[in-house]
Amino acid sequence: MLEFICRRILSLFPVILGLLVLTYALLYLAPSDPATILAGENASVEDIQAVRKEYGLDRPVYVQFGMYLKQVSVGNLGVSMYSNRPVLEDIAQRLPATIELALVSLVLMAIGGITLGTMGAVWHNSPIDHVTRMISVAGLAIATFWLAIMLQLVFAMVLGWFPVRGRIPPEMVPPVQITGLYLLDSILTLNFSAFRDAVRHITLPAITLAFGGLATVARFTRSSMLENLTKEYVSYQHATGVPFRRIIVPYVLRNSVITAVTQLGLLFGSLISGAVVVEMIFDWPGIGSYLVNAIFTSDYKVILAVTIVVGVIYALVNIIVDVIHAMIDPRLR
């Protein structure tokens, strides 16, 4: 098992290196020149050239890349050209917001998806099945950004049930930082009013983000349950007089859920893509909005760093899922 994990982690390095080369090449090809902005509104041509030199933007690309690799190999992801702040520090500060959002969405996804899928399988081919299937099909066809705007429009702007933006009310100071996850921190510090506020703020973004994945989980739960329901042991038990619902929960559901949960790893990618737009629309201060901002301002170091961090997290999540998978099914090792 240990060997399996090590092998998977080692295989990560070439991928990350490739990712770096790819991203760097893309940035190099970009027509934008941050020096003109950095040099300021009253800059002369000489001023712009001086800034270019200062940041090494006038050097050959392989020299720049070499310098960058050397930095990254010692864990230094550089500083943002605009803020002069270490990128790693900014990411560390913003990552908890994204993680919190992703975790809550995953939970919603799992609960909603498994419930819908189970209902669909148990009442196979009934109106309930059709409705749940419609929901899961719709989930994959709806544009995340549109759903976000519609939910914001209806529940925040018109009905006013939820806040339109942010993680906490504007006038509030963030709860004392322990984990950076406001929901958790507010409970740990017994700050229940902050907890209530945090829940209200995360509701709409998390629902938006969960919707697409929920559909996938529902489909997988439903199909694997249908498969399990036709297995012999189920028919056998049913034949021996065990009530149907007593079979479903302990046997069928457990088996099906395991299959469905392994899908969650694959959903992580869509979760990150979704986070980019959801964070933007709800002003959620995570790394998704950080990345969009960096792309729009051509902040090279930030784009590179976030790409690496997302790539590593993405790969780690997949490794974890594979490990769980391998533990369940030793044939895969």
Binding site: V15, G18, S273, I295, T307
Partner: peptide, 22 residues
């Protein structure tokens, strides 16, 4: 196949965003 790995290592939208930007 390793190259496809690299492309699949980041969510598609993020990569497409970066490419479209340039």
């Amino acid at each position: 196949m390793r190259i496809t790995d690299i492309f699949l290592a980041v969510p598609q939208l993020v990569l497409a965003l970066a490419i479209a930007q340039i």
